[in-house]
């Protein structure tokens, strides 16, 4: 009898207390002053929430010759990382800066549709069919390179992207940020793409 009561008491205690124990409480403490950070890690966006994880780093990026480019003066260069060949913060009016990344990987990395749909997924858009993508891609050639340019938005976020095959690798240029700000930035992005050249091109 006593044992049954004990069992029921344990069950009840578990049910009522387990979730309670895990709720964080208000805490107070005194710390030596620190300089307030200019921007917190999260403010720089999910990609900058921390350095590239080790799980990511073994992915081989394309080696060999690198494309060259000239970034607009108002873009702020960020240090390249193990994954990024180039990285820029594109200032916006008051909001968090838009993020421009230049990456390169060997092969075709799954092809254009898979990569474009991956970008669509990053701003919560459903995958587009191949037929839709054919009309969505703007193509042009410059300095001996072919550019496949896309532009998607979900009302708040926008992605301007370009896929550039180059000597057995595929280069990706992606600008992500607030939709309205990128509307203003698009001409600068397209001008920037025109500066992307193979290394030997003068």
């Amino acid at each position: 009898m006593r044992f049954t009561i004990l069992l029921l008491a344990i069950t009840a205690a578990l049910c009522f207390n387990v979730s309670g124990c895990r709720d964080p409480e208000v805490t107070t403490y005194r710390v030596a002053k620190e300089t307030p950070p200019a921007a917190s890690a999260a403010a720089k966006g999910p990609a900058a929430a921390g350095p590239a994880t080790m799980a990511n780093t073994p992915v081989p990026t394309a080696d060999g010759e690198s494309l060259t480019w000239t970034a607009p003066a108002h873009w702020q260069a960020k240090p390249a990382t193990a994954m990024r060949k180039g990285s820029y913060a594109v200032p916006t009016d008051g909001g968090p800066p838009a993020d421009l990344s230049i990456t390169a990987f060997p092969g075709d990395v799954g092809g254009e549709p898979a990569n474009i749909n991956r970008w669509r997924g990053q701003i919560q858009l459903s995958p587009a069919s191949d037929a839709d993508l054919t009309t969505a891609i703007t193509r042009f050639e410059n300095s001996g390179l072919t550019f496949a340019v896309v532009d998607f938005e979900n009302g708040q976020q926008r992605v301007l992207g370009a896929i550039i095959p180059f000597r057995g690798s595929t280069w990706f240029v992606k600008l992500t940020g607030p939709a309205t700000e990128l509307t203003k930035e698009k001409p600068a992005f397209l001008t920037f793409l025109k500066t992307v050249k193979p290394p030997s091109t003068p």
Binding site: V26, T28, R30, K33
Partner: peptide, 9 residues
């Protein structure tokens, strides 16, 4: 010199 912090989850 010191900051007094109240951290609200």
């Amino acid at each position: 010199k010191m900051d007094e912090v109240v951290a609200i989850p």
